[in-house]
């Protein structure tokens, strides 16, 4: 476990590292001694990295590292082709005769030669050479996400690294079942929850600063009760989601990770609704930072199942008779 002071120092270094977003986040984190940091306290370190990333609106491919690490494929590749938001948790690729249909998202330009991709029920590694991408566009073009939409030859697969689908997991001992896509999704969802919450906290800070300095009717608008209460409500939502994300690490199940990501998504929606209202016209202008936080939070919510999709899925399971799981809180 990392103590408060070490964690503070770590956050400082991460913040510094993210102010000039490194093209190769994996290498930059490695320089920081990330492997040792993870070994010491993976939940705290991951939470710090993604909260800072959200707070500073930086985009990196750090999420890829989380999934690749979970899958134990770190020696093979460092990148992931994520399912398109429309497809929730995937897959991002399907076999189609001798070919493979890819539709997914990459978080930044594919400079590596290979990438992980959820293929049907399995996890595959593909060669990325010649794979064309184009900017995703949409709500938050600044995120720099790219769309992959292609059909490739099946021999682009690197067979040895296929999990499931009859292949063998790299680095997996005999008799162990290798971590699968579901585990990678769970790890990524915990990270995304923290990133969404980093964005949300920043939105509360931006709005708080605005209502302290902006005066109307002779007083700071932040002294009006309805303005104060909106921000307090946003704060409470963030506090609940933050606690749940921490619990999702303790609990460790994909279910808990899904719940945490959904609750973070709902919290962000609450926060930005209130923040936009209390910032008035300024909050809706291009120059003011709020719209970026609105965009980024919604974009992050869309990846690997939105809050709404997850609620629907979990509610469906409850209706089908699942006893409501009590997330392990430690």
């Amino acid at each position: 476990m990392m103590d408060e002071e070490t964690l503070g120092l770590l956050r400082g270094s991460l913040r510094q590292l993210l102010t000039t977003p490194p093209a190769d986040i994996a290498a930059a984190l490695a320089d920081l001694g990330w492997a040792e940091v993870l070994a010491e306290d993976e939940p705290a370190a991951t939470t710090a990295l993604f909260e800072e990333q959200g707070d500073t609106l930086t985009t990196t491919a750090a999420l890829d590292g989380v999934a690749v690490g979970t899958l134990g494929l770190g020696s093979v590749t460092s990148r992931v082709i994520w399912p398109h938001p429309a497809d929730g948790t995937g897959p991002a690729a399907l076999r189609d005769g001798g070919r493979i249909r890819l539709r997914g998202i990459v978080l930044s330009a594919l400079t590596d030669e290979t990438a992980v991709v959820p293929l049907g029920d399995a996890v595959a590694v593909v060669r990325t050479g010649g794979l064309s991408t184009r900017p995703l566009g949409g709500l938050d073009p600044d995120a720099g996400w790219l769309l992959v939409d292609a059909a490739i030859d099946a021999d682009t697969l690197i067979d040895a690294a296929i999990h499931g689908d009859g292949g063998v997991g790299v680095g997996v001992g005999v008799g162990e079942s290798p971590p699968g896509w579901e585990d990678a999704v769970a790890a990524a969802r915990r990270a995304l929850a923290s990133e969404i919450l980093g964005v949300s906290r920043r939105a509360l800070i931006v709005a708080g600063d605005h209502v302290r300095s902006r005066k109307q009717f002779g007083r700071a608008i932040g002294s009006y009760q309805s303005v104060r209460h909106r921000l307090a409500e946003g704060h409470a939502a963030v506090v609940g989601a933050t606690a749940l994300t921490a619990s999702a690490w303790v609990d460790g199940t994909p279910w808990a990770a899904a719940t945490a990501k959904a609750v973070a998504g709902w919290a962000h929606a609450d926060v930005v609704r209130h923040a936009m209202q209390v910032c008035g016209g300024m909050g809706l202008s291009e120059e003011f930072p709020l719209h970026r936080l609105v965009r980024r939070g919604y974009l992050l919510d869309s990846l690997l199942g939105s809050a709404r999709m997850i609620a629907r899925e979990q509610g469906g399971e409850l209706l089908a008779g699942l006893d409501p799981p009590g997330i392990v809180v430690g």
Binding site: V263, A311, R312, Q314, G315
Partner: peptide, 9 residues
């Protein structure tokens, strides 16, 4: 399902 899931969350 969505309403129930959200309440659970």
């Amino acid at each position: 399902a969505e309403a129930l899931g959200r309440a659970y969350q």
